[in-house]
Computed example of a mutant assay.
Amino acid sequence: MTASSYPVLPDERLAAGVARLAVRHQGRYSVETVQRLIADSYEQLAANAHVRTHLVVLAERFAAERLDALAHIESPTGGERPRVLFVCSHNAGRSQMAAALLAHRAGDDVIVSSAGTHPSGAVDPHVVQALTEAGVALDEVYPKPLTDEIVQAADIVITMGCGDACPVVPGHRYLDWPVPDPDGAPIAVVRSIRDALDARITALLDTLPGA
């Protein structure tokens, strides 16, 4: 296949990310596959982004997560770290807080993802504030759409308020956490939601192997 027949990149700066991810997955995925996925990741994020300044960087990160999920689906190995996916409607509040809290508590023992069935353009600033106050480091969090490979790769899918749009994949472990939506809530309410999620994370950790 010639370079001209590769999927078109919506931003030429994505080419560097394609090169990096192609090297990381050399022997598993072709450059064409990587380029297609990074272009799709960019377009999905751009569809809802309020600020496009960091879209190129975020698209590479999103594509890297999706490629890792695909690799896990195609070649699962025993004894791997458990993979937990949090899903809510907008991926701007509850699922972001839960994912950040679990990643903070479990460290490298758990692979954590979050996504939204209808992702928002930005994470709620009160959510960022409440997590920062709790000492949870945030690495440029951003709302992400729910994709098939991320769902398929998860061992546990935890849903929060996405209703019928929440994914259902046979054979997966599902939990539904009825936690209030922090969207538009004052910081005091967001802190209480954070603490409620943290209590649920504590209980979840007791059920995860190796965590």
Rank of each mutant, 00 (worst) to 15 (best):
L102K: 03
A98C: 09
Y42R: 02
A3H: 10
A137M: 11
V136W: 07
V189Q: 13
R20I: 00
G27Y: 12
L9N: 06
I38E: 02
Y6V: 06
D164G: 13
R66D: 08
S75M: 11
L205S: 15
D164F: 10
I158K: 07
L85R: 04
V8D: 09
L197A: 11
H25G: 03
K144N: 12
V112G: 10
E60Q: 03
Y6D: 13
Q96P: 06
P145Y: 12
P7D: 05
V34A: 04
R173Q: 14
V189K: 09
A203H: 13
L58Q: 15
A130F: 04
E140K: 14
P119W: 07
L208M: 07
S5R: 14
L204Q: 09
A122E: 14
C166L: 02
L208Y: 06
A115C: 15
R52C: 03
V179D: 01
I38M: 01
G107A: 10
G121C: 07
A49G: 03
D206T: 15
D11K: 03
P125N: 13
G116N: 11
H25I: 00
V51T: 07
G17F: 00
L197Y: 09
D124A: 15
G171H: 04
G116Y: 12
P180D: 15
A69Q: 00
G171K: 06
R20P: 00
P178W: 02
L21M: 01
E74T: 01
A203K: 13
L70T: 02
L58H: 10
L70K: 10
A130Y: 03
V151H: 11
T207D: 12
S95I: 07
D124V: 11
I187Y: 10
R94L: 04
G210R: 14
P82W: 03
D183I: 15
E140V: 12
P209Q: 07
G107D: 08
A154I: 09
R52M: 02
A106S: 12
I201S: 08
G79E: 05
L55W: 04
R200T: 06
R173F: 09
W177S: 02
A203L: 12
D198W: 13
L131G: 02
T117G: 05
P209N: 09
T33D: 06
P125E: 12
M97C: 06
G121L: 09
V169N: 15
A153C: 12
A134H: 05
